[in-house]
Design a protein around this nucleic acid. Structure first.
Length: 677
DNA sequence: GTAGGGTTAG
């Protein structure tokens, strides 16, 4: 025996030790690869598998594939691990590629191979592929073991094909707890909760997953009480049970109860618990609380994941918290989090909603893969910022890249055309929706078209479209036309439209807002008053106006009538100065319209100043350089719009206001919306 | 078995 042979185990051990480290750099990876490939005695199943999983952890699947090709005697088990790893860590593009390569390498697939492929079909929603794989398994005559059968069950569950799932289940000669759990999951997904429960009751053995499956099953049906009963009865509660229950409360809007459970968990929480709670606050539109939760998570030293960041970015997008969003982006880069389509889209969404369309574009172009969500976000973002032409260009590029547009794409595109006054382009794409793109126009697309036509002054065309559209127009569609009538001062048509609106939906609270607009526009203030009284009587609820601004990473919210801000007195005094300055430069406050205009679903006139003015004043006081960015939950009122134009000019600052619908870039006395919003 | 993404018109 020569010395090399004696040393072999130690080399293998050393390599193994290297590979088992959580982080391995590329150089080390290459070294190990060379070592294994040049020494065929090192090509053991264990080392091969460990090397492959290191590649997967370092997101270097191409290394792994190259490595497999160069093995002296690749086995199906090596390729199987490859497929399994690419399913677990890949993007859904690779795993079938590895299967093809395996065939090219003359390695025969086995039951394990197909089991992994089925897992991939479940993970990446590849329905037709999964069905084909089932056929292939039958054709190749493999013995269906319980593992493969359970894989099929999972797959048909994902596909929502209850019949096939039942067939597979019934044909199983024996079923272990995992198989039964899979069937419960299928039944629950297809809404057969009673069947799921019966199976659950009949099971000879239950593990924690069985109980948890039933919890999610009831949660999905929004039957939180039953879910809670199961949760309380569960003798083997683990962290998943708690997480599932917390998520159930979040999804049903009972965020406080979710929080109680969360608090009761103490140190039993894991990162999913935190992510669930953060996402819950975002879903309940408690964005500031979501951020607080994240800060708490950091205090407790729990590592945020990609999922945390997605929820957090969504919170930033809603809050308009650009600084915080930027900080998260930096964190993602610094900690090497994987920017997949979901996280990428969350970034794009955050940037454009926080007023930075440029950075949104950078992120967008930097994504290696873009799905329809990403394209929709960028198209919508461009449109909202008044870049209609660029929105159309993006749409055309999307077509080139063979991504099929959906209904949302057209909402973004058409509203983009509308904001930029691109009438003929909008008309063209609308008319091509079904024939060319196979997307059925919905009420929202008709809404966009009415807005587009009306905005540009084609009131007759807009009316004709409403009268001939195949869907019953709702109050929003009529309202779009009404708004256009008001802008283009067509009182006669306004009255007609209002009539139609009230006939159509006499109980819709929103109609009273319209009606009062019409009266206000013809100075029938008495009728406006009556209208407002009717709204109060009917209990039509109006959202209070609220503007927020971010200063040094802190979001300051100004709600109407709320004087609780610590620097309120100072802000108020400064606002007095601004108002005086505005007056000196000829700005007359639009008091009549402020008093009677309930266009913005709010009665900010109850207090002296609208929330956006307070936020802008605070911004001017606190931010020395760069644009002032304000986010408002409702539409900007006419008076504030005029005032802001002048403030931008007098203070020589760019003021970017995001309102309910779009962005206003105020600069040097002008606004990017060209006074139509 | 538990957690994450996009949209319009008043």
């Amino acid at each position: 025996m020569n010395s090399t042979h004696r040393n072999l185990p130690s080399i293998a051990d050393r390599i193994l030790f290297h590979l088992q480290k959580s982080l391995i750099n590329l150089r080390q990876l290459q070294q190990v690869q060379a070592q294994i490939l040049t020494n065929s005695s090192l090509q053991t199943n264990s080392l091969i598998t460990h090397f492959l999983s290191s590649c997967a952890r370092s997101r270097k699947l191409d290394y792994a594939s190259h490595f497999l090709h160069n093995l002296r005697d690749p086995t199906s088990s090596s390729w199987n691990s490859m497929i399994k790893l690419s399913v677990e860590s890949g993007s859904g593009q690779e795993f079938m590629g590895f299967y093809q390569k395996m065939l090219l390498d003359n390695v025969k697939p086995d039951a394990m191979t197909f089991s992994s492929i089925l897992r991939g079909c479940v993970t990446f929603s590849k329905i037709s592929l999964g069905e084909a794989v089932h056929g292939l398994i039958l054709k190749m005559g493999f013995v269906f073991d319980m593992f493969l059968q359970t894989g099929l069950l999972d797959f048909y569950g994902k596909a929502g094909d209850l019949t096939s799932a039942k067939q597979v289940f019934d044909e199983m000669p024996q079923r272990d707890v995992v198989a039964n759990n899979a069937m419960i999951a299928v039944l629950s997904k297809c809404g057969h909760v009673t069947d799921a429960h019966n199976l659950f009751e009949k099971m000879p053995e239950r593990n924690s997953a069985s109980w948890n499956c039933m919890i999610t099953c009831y949660c999905k049906l929004d039957d939180i009480c039953s879910a809670r009963t199961i949760f309380d009865k569960n003798p083997v509660k683990d962290v998943v049970s708690w997480n599932a229950m917390i998520d159930g409360y979040c999804k049903s809007g009972q965020i406080e109860t979710a929080r109680e459970l969360f608090n009761r968990m103490g140190s039993a929480k894991n990162s999913v618990t935190w992510n669930t709670m953060i996402a819950g606050y975002v879903q309940c539109r408690e964005f500031a609380k979501a951020v607080l939760m994240f800060q708490q998570m950091q205090v407790e030293n729990v590592k945020p994941t990609e999922v945390t960041m997605v929820s957090l970015l969504s919170a930033c997008a809603h809050l308009g918290a650009l600084d915080m969003g930027r900080w998260i982006h930096a964190y993602i880069r610094h900690h090497n989090l994987k920017i997949d389509v979901v996280l990428g889209n969350a970034l794009i969404d955050m940037y454009y909603k926080c007023g930075s369309i440029e950075t949104a574009l950078e992120v967008f172009h930097g994504l290696s893969r873009k799905n329809v969500y990403c394209w929709n976000s960028i198209i919508t973002g461009l449109g909202m910022h008044g870049h209609g032409k660029e929105a159309i260009d993006a749409f055309l590029k999307m077509e080139e890249e063979m991504i099929r547009p959906d209904g949302v794409t057209f909402v973004g595109l058409l509203s983009g055309c509308s904001h930029s006054g691109l009438v003929s382009e909008g008309r063209q794409y609308f008319s091509q929706m079904i024939g060319v793109y196979g997307v059925e126009p919905g009420i929202e697309h008709y809404g966009c078209m009415v807005d587009l036509l009306g905005r540009a002054g084609f009131l007759e065309d807009a009316l004709k479209l409403i009268e001939t559209m195949p869907i019953k127009p709702n109050s929003i569609v009529w309202g779009s036309l009404l708004r256009a009538c008001r802008v283009h001062r067509d009182t006669k048509l306004s009255e007609q439209v209002t009539q139609r609106l009230l006939e159509l939906e006499p109980h819709d609270g929103g109609n009273y807002v319209f009606l009062s607009n019409v009266y206000a526009s013809v100075n029938r203030w008495n009728d406006v008053e009556i209208c407002r009284r009717m709204m109060t009587e009917k209990g039509v609820r109006k959202t209070p106006g609220c503007s927020s601004i971010e200063v040094n990473n802190v979001v300051h919210e100004f709600v109407v009538g709320d004087t609780s801000h610590p620097r309120f007195a100072q802000i108020n005094a400064f606002l007095d100065e601004i108002v005086k300055e505005l007056r000196d430069h000829g700005h007359e406050p639009d008091t009549a319209s402020v008093l009677h205009d309930i266009d913005d679903e709010e009665k900010e006139n109850a207090v002296r100043y609208h929330s956006e003015k307070i936020a802008i004043a605070f911004g001017l006081m606190s931010i020395r350089q760069g644009p002032i960015r304000v986010v408002k939950n409702l539409r900007v009122c006419r008076d504030c719009h005029e005032a802001t134009k002048l403030i931008a000019k007098l203070f020589r600052r760019e003021i970017i206001v995001r309102d309910r619908n779009r962005f206003h870039h105020f600069r040097d006395g002008f606004c990017s919306c060209k006074d139509y919003w």
